[in-house]
């Protein structure tokens, strides 16, 4: 498989996986684009990876951890009066995605969101998810079970509230 073919086939699911983890469309797209660029630069190695898309997602998530360092280039000035312009955390939902579902995902702890994203969009099994995230398979199972339980409670109660209103 050449890189262009891989990119066309995997780019949307990689973006969706990272979007669930970082919660912001523009950030996710930037991270995934950079991760694909790194995949191109190491395509000889990445193409032999059992799941190259998982390599891209893992690289994008790692880049997100380092990304905060670049904020130092801003020259901050205090303007406490302007904080009212900031969006509330609950407004982080990405445009094209149902706000209720996005909010429910964003309320999950970060690791649970990553596990859910890899299962949802890359269809990784427990062992492969554990390899990608560098955690034990049992931990993946526990995270997924908790995430599903939380999402079910969250989305079911939201449906009931809509029904009542």
């Amino acid at each position: 498989m050449d890189f262009a073919e891989f990119y066309r086939a995997a780019k949307d699911d990689c973006l969706r996986s990272v979007l669930v983890s970082v919660g912001d469309r523009d950030t996710a797209q930037e991270l995934v684009a950079e991760a694909f660029a790194r995949a191109w630069a190491s395509w000889g190695t990445v193409s032999r990876h059992p799941v190259p898309a998982a390599w891209v997602v893992r690289t994008a998530l790692n880049a997100n951890i380092s990304r905060w360092r670049r904020r130092r280039r801003e020259v901050p000035l205090p303007d406490p009066g302007a904080v009212a312009d900031l969006p509330a955390a609950g407004e982080a939902a990405d445009g094209p995605v149902d706000a209720q579902i996005m909010a429910a995902l964003l309320r999950l702890p970060g690791r649970q969101r990553q596990v859910v994203a890899l299962r949802l969009f890359l269809d990784l099994d427990t062992v492969r998810t554990a390899e990608v995230l560098g955690i034990a398979p049992g931990t993946v199972t526990a995270h997924l079970a908790r995430a599903i339980a939380t999402l079910r409670d969250d989305l079911t109660s939201a449906d009931q509230q809509e029904t009542l209103s």
Binding site: K11, L15, L19, A33, D94, V97, I101, L105, R119, L120
Partner: peptide, 16 residues
């Protein structure tokens, strides 16, 4: 549940 959560993301596309 997983289908319900996954479905809205079909509108998300990487356009780079």
């Amino acid at each position: 549940l997983m289908t319900t959560v996954r479905e809205p993301f079909t509108a998300v596309h990487m356009d780079t």
